[in-house]
Amino acid sequence: MRLTARAGAGLFAAAVGVFLYAYSFDIRQPPNLSALSGPRIFPQMVGLALATLGLLFAASETLNPTRIPEEERPGPFDYKAFGLTLGSLALFILLLPRAGFILSETIMFGIVAWAFGATRPLRAFGVGLIVALVVYYVFTQWLGLRLPVGDVFRNEPLRGLLETFGWRP
């Protein structure tokens, strides 16, 4: 008998339940609403349910772990690809306000493609740049979304070049 990852997930859910219940008392109860129709009751119900079912699940997984059939079990954990994909998203969050949409997406695209086994990294970043440019153009010029352009594209000569093609970033 040992704590499996699934049992751990059950404990996590139970912890979330306890948290929801404990902090439900921070919600202000307006005087015109009764306890059963106020803003606290439902979070408390959800918290209690999560805590009970989470513990129940953890117990049942510990006593009688679910056996996942061999062919459905995941293969060995690919830390490199996973880390690169996760890192590329974190990098995107850091870059977006500074480098703008086009560059951030290009870099993320390139890293993810590399993680998923793209053989020629330079080509991956190239494809990423094309995708980012097309997406940026379509979504800002046709569909009216506003996306940060980034300092690189505010550079005057480049801006002049883009504007000759009728594109106002």
Binding site: T85, S88, L89, F92, L96, F101, E105, M108, F109, G110, V112, A113, W114, A115, F116, G117, A118, A124, V127, G128, V131, A132, V135, F139, L145, L147
Partner: peptide
Amino acid sequence: IPRPFLYAGILVFATLGVYG
């Protein structure tokens, strides 16, 4: 479609959709 480009593309649209 090469899978590396497909999944990279999915994440581009994901970030675009959420941020946009």
